[in-house]
């Protein structure tokens, strides 16, 4: 539900970003082959806006998430968060900048350390950002309630929860530093249908409550349509089409988007 659309005051802007991977060499003396996962991509996300990134496996959408999160550096181009070029920040400044953007992963089983309690995991960003220890229990309890879980769940371990509950816990950890951007990489794909809707609703509620911008990566057009304002269609590391969700879905310009849509339409 954003009033600030597109490029006016982008919270995130990705400018001409390229990322290449060197693949294992196939011959003894030949050059190692290079895979360009992301080719000169540009887009931006406004404050409180949800941008959907749709593409199939191998489209480069997950690489994009890792670049935005600073897990990897682009070979070319710039990722700006709130106007700052992330690659140029000092490690200390980068750590502070991290408060502003957090991530929710696809597999709720893998995103929580099985050996740590839920409360420990949720408090991890607080420890990393040197928030006084005395504030931790209250902050953890607060976010647990925000994601619809009981505060006393903090003492339990991940295996005691269902997939949907674990994804709520992962979301709680992501919002505990009150970020301004959430990167959700296939965040509902591993969930059962009935739980998927709950998590999508939760993300929309949190967005309204906290003014979050969301970069929502998914292969599922119906999910993108349910939650996003604008969308990008990716294929082979390139952006094929970009625009407001209703426009792209009702009048796709690119043949590939049309093919994706016709597959999705059959499902409705």
């Amino acid at each position: 539900m954003s009033q600030t659309q597109g490029t006016a005051h982008p919270i995130l802007s990705v400018e001409q970003v390229t990322r290449r991977y060197r693949l294992p060499r196939t011959t003894l003396f030949g050059e190692a082959p290079v895979l360009t996962a992301v080719k000169g991509i540009s887009f931006s996300i406004g404050i409180g806006e949800t941008l959907g990134i749709v593409g199939e496996s191998g489209s480069g959408k997950s690489t994009l998430a890792r670049l935005v999160m600073g897990f990897e550096q682009p070979d070319e181009g710039v990722v700006r968060f709130d106007g700052y070029d992330l690659a140029r920040l000092t490690p200390a400044a980068f750590r502070i900048a991290r408060r502003g953007f957090q991530m929710v992963f696809q597999d709720p089983n893998g995103s929580l350390d099985p050996r740590r309690t839920v409360g420990w995991s949720i408090a991890e960003p607080l420890r990393a950002q040197s928030v006084p220890l005395s504030e931790h229990p209250a902050r953890v309890a607060e976010v647990l309630e925000q994601v619809g879980l009981r505060p006393d769940y903090a003492k339990r371990f991940p295996h005691e929860f269902s997939g949907g509950q674990r994804q709520r816990i992962a979301i709680a950890r992501a919002i505990v530093m009150r970020p301004r951007l959430l990167v959700a990489d296939e965040a509902v794909s591993a969930l059962d249908v009935s739980v998927q809707a709950q998590i999508l609703n939760l993300l929309m509620d949190l967005q309204d409550e906290l003014g979050l911008a969301i970069m929502f990566i998914s292969h599922d057009l119906a999910v993108i349509s349910s939650i996003c304002d604008r969308m990008i269609v990716m294929r082979h590391g390139e952006v094929l089409e970009e625009g407001p969700v209703p426009t792209v879905i009702s009048a796709p310009r690119h043949a590939y988007t049309q093919a994706l849509l016709s597959a999705a339409r059959l499902e409705d």
Partner: peptide, 19 residues
């Protein structure tokens, strides 16, 4: 993913190795 989450939180390599 939980290590990526710790990195996203801003944990340094030493703390991640330990925790």
């Amino acid at each position: 993913d939980y290590v990526y989450a710790a990195r996203a939180a801003g944990m340094n390599r030493f703390a991640i190795s330990r925790d």
